[in-house]
Design a protein around this nucleic acid. Structure first.
Lengths: 127, 127
DNA sequence: TCTATATTTCGCCAAATAACGAATTAATAG
DNA sequence: CTATTAATTCGTTATTTGGCGAAATATAGA
């Protein structure tokens, strides 16, 4: 029951569903998710933590960047949940907009994205 | 997205998962759910309202009693979610205990259950 | 070795949600 | 028609959860 609840609670938030749909298409870096969803780094990090604890995503580190991807050997509960989410949201407008935005973002290196993000933080601190 | 979120949020609560598993097995009356879960009538009613709004259950009235049952023609999202929940919780201990308790409860008429519940409320008011 | 950096964790706050008792509603039974 | 009843809705309270900025952490790069 606990495992099931971890999964259902992880899925009970729009941002986390959007993140899952991004990750379903391809492995993505935290900074890329931040760009697409427009939330703070800390917020995205927290969402990712919940998804990972539920077994819905996995991560690896490369250089300074952490990439999140679909679990390699998901159990049946996780696999079923991921399939259900994909099927249910396949024609969703918000996901399509994210995909469009993500196409632009993910064609960039995390290095390049980081530059833009650093610059943006800088501008904000000057306000 | 809204429909998907309604479903995932409805599933993100233990009591509601337990209710769904009861209803999966057979149509049940509110008073029977109250007996098995041990919560207040108002609490169960609220849970049922959320499940119904998400399309996960349907209801009919017979005499003084309202029965809840699986949707007759569920859309793919609802059908997928119900299947996933059943599959995921089929070996769950809490569900087994509920089933055992429910076997005793559901062998009774709502009329009989109501008498016991009325008596119980009476005893509580005397305390 | 030290500095810069990407990300996570912490602390705080606002919003959302779960639980209950009381009040209300919609019927049924007598 | 009136009284009773099963269930729902409302109001209140406690708990959980989502969001952010600040602080902390781990590590790459100079």
């Amino acid at each position: 029951m606990k495992h099931t609840l971890n999964i259902t609670k992880a899925l009970a938030d729009e941002s986390r569903l959007r993140i899952l749909m991004m990750i379903r298409e391809k492995e993505v870096c935290v900074c890329q998710i931040v760009e697409v969803l427009g939330s703070a780094f800390s917020t995205i990090s927290k969402h990712l933590s919940i998804l990972k604890a539920a077994g819905l995503i996995e991560s690896r580190k490369q250089g300074r960047w952490i990439y999140y991807y679909e679990p390699i050997s998901p159990g049946p509960a996780v696999q079923g949940a991921l399939d259900w989410v994909s099927q249910t949201l396949k024609d969703c407008g918000q996901i399509a907009r994210d995909r469009e935005k993500g196409t632009l973002v993910c064609s960039q290196d995390p290095e390049d994205i980081a530059k833009v993000q650093r610059h943006r933080v800088c501008m904000q601190h000057q306000l």
